[in-house]
Design a protein around this nucleic acid. Structure first.
Length: 490
RNA sequence: CGGGGCGUAGCGUAGCCCGGUCAUCGCGCCUGGUUUGGGACCAGGAGGUCGCAAGUUCGAAUCUUGCCGCCCCGACCA
């Protein structure tokens, strides 16, 4: 294994792939398009899970689990839903293997399923089937359920974390008595995602609405958060769908309201996936490796003793452990790496690759002066601090790093967001600068597709928080009051 | 499914045109020792059906044919 990473500017994809592997996050599995998430990568994902799960609970949601396998017939109950997913479904057709006469194992042709089963690409259908039995009255509503699960979408081309044939995610599925309530839920969860992205991932996002063309298959309206990566490409980091009564009608989910009249319930669904890991990696990391925001780092601090001869081993190890104990009392997660099988330099490089926010090194010199060397990962600055000040300074430093990473990403996004009014300008920005481009659009799918074909840029969203400006559509010149966010995207 | 490329030790590779001490080198691994303030050094060691199969040949990692697998670029997409 060679030592450094490829340079970000030279080859962003190679840099990303190498980083994912060398930081010990994930690797390609034996199965095409599938990913093995390694313990260190999974520890970061677990932090995300715990945080999000807490936020879901606070907004009144509970967890449940639904089956991996979905009868094929369920799938076709909602017309646009099938159309959206049909091309990427893995299908189970048999339930038994047998020994082949020529050696090896074959699928037993006698064990063919009467009805094929689809490995869930998303769970709306199987969940709404349950809802049809669970919901009779307005008293059963709202039903606010989330599940943590894996899904399979048979993608042609895959990339670790960003697009894999199987991925982990959470999918919330809620049912409500009124349209208004369901719409409010959709927007509430969009806000939860945006808050998570900004406060925990240190990733600024733009909240917006998808165009009809980019809408979730089966939704009336799809909202999303869009983030910008360091190569100037956009990444959809989460989606929240207002399903209207589409799935209620498809699965016959009716409830009796207070007046005793039957009506279909209103639905929402929302999800984020291990793709967030990709976003986290691409948004903050540098040529030295991963840069993790302290709130999601499995170890916020790593402590490395620097031995000089056997006599120093014991006192240095004890000094490191003491600092670790002090920090842990403050709720800081700490790893002490006192292995003597690796040199300090090796460890420094290794923990930078893994993105540990703060590194503390203690050697004989420090022991004598009652100091420690403190290095922050985000700026790679080092300073010498008195040992007895570490406990008071490190928590502040971690907060400072969290804020700094966010501000850096935010400034980057600002520098890569351009407003344009002509198609020439639009194309010029996309080719030379990349990033987000705000422009007017005439609102038709036809124009949207033309622009995509001509420039590869797609409409990421119609931003919610920005003023809509009147102006001509950049492509057709037709008068338009829809100002949208374009970008080349992952 | 179209267009390119690749398959040699755990990983990354040289050799292939021009067949014959060619199985190379680096990392990693094991043993012993010296080390440890930015990816340590020395000595010794283990590890290979050269993707699979058939063919050509006295002789194949190298040439021929057929499979299989993987990667990249498109179409598809969270």
């Amino acid at each position: 294994m060679s030592k450094g990473l490829p340079k970000r500017e030279d080859d962003y994809s190679a840099w990303y792939n190498e980083l994912v592997k060398k930081a010990d996050l994930a690797e390609n599995a034996a199965v095409r398009g599938c990913m093995v998430i390694k313990p260190y990568g999974f520890a970061i994902w677990e932090k995300m899970q715990q945080t999000l799960d807490g936020m879901f609970k606070q907004t009144g949601h509970v967890n449940a689990y639904f089956p991996l396998l979905i009868p094929k017939s369920f799938f076709s109950k909602e017309a646009s839903h099938v159309d959206g997913f049909a091309k990427e479904c893995a299908v189970v057709t048999h339930y038994r293997l047998k020994n082949s006469e020529t050696g090896g194992v074959i699928v037993d042709p006698d064990a063919k399923l009467e009805e094929e089963l689809i490995i869930r690409p998303t769970s709306e259908t199987i969940i709404w089937d349950s809802y049809s039995r669970w919901i009779q009255s307005y008293r059963d509503l709202p039903l606010l359920i989330n599940q943590w699960a894996n899904v399979v979408r048979w993608e042609m081309r895959t990339r670790l974390f960003l697009r894999t044939a199987e991925f982990l995610w959470q999918e919330g599925h809620t049912a409500h008595a009124t349209k208004k309530e369901a719409e409010a839920e959709t927007l509430q969860m969009l806000d939860v995602y945006a808050e998570f992205a900004e406060n925990y991932m240190a990733l600024p996002v733009i909240k917006g609405m998808k165009t009809a063309n980019e809408r979730f298959a089966g939704a009336e309206e799809t909202y999303c958060i869009e983030a910008l990566m360091q190569d100037g490409k956009a990444l959809q980091a989460g989606t929240s769908h207002f399903l209207g009564q589409n799935f209620a009608k498809a699965f016959d989910v009716k409830f009796a309201n207070k007046e005793g009249q039957l009506d279909y319930v209103w639905g929402t669904s929302w999800g984020v996936s291990t793709r967030l890991m990709g976003a986290l990696i691409m948004a903050h990391s540098d040529d030295q490796g991963l840069v993790l925001p302290p709130k999601l780092a499995p170890w916020q601090v790593v402590i490395v003793p620097i031995f000089k001869g056997d006599a120093t081993v014991e006192p240095l190890t004890e000094a490191c452990q003491q600092v670790a104990r002090d920090l842990r009392k403050l709720g800081v997660s700490v790893k002490v790496d006192d292995r003597d099988s690796q040199t300090p330099g090796w460890k420094f490089a290794e923990y930078e690759l893994k993105g540990v926010p703060v590194r503390i090194a203690i050697g004989p010199r420090d022991l004598e002066n009652k100091t420690a060397e403190v290095a922050r990962r985000d700026t790679r600055e080092k300073s010498i601090l008195p040992l007895d000040e570490l406990a008071s300074q490190i928590p502040d430093l971690l907060e400072n790093i969290q804020a700094n990473i966010y501000n850096k990403a935010s400034a980057f996004r600002a520098s890569k967001t351009t407003e344009v009014s002509t198609y020439e300008e639009f194309k010029h920005v996309l080719d030379n600068k990349g990033g987000f481009v705000l422009a007017n659009w005439d609102g038709t799918t036809e124009t949207e597709l033309k622009i995509k074909e001509e420039t590869k840029a797609t409409i990421r969203c119609i931003p919610l928080d920005r003023d809509q400006k009147e102006g001509p559509c950049i492509r057709t010149g037709k008068s338009s009051n829809i100002r949208v966010l374009f970008a080349k995207a992952y």
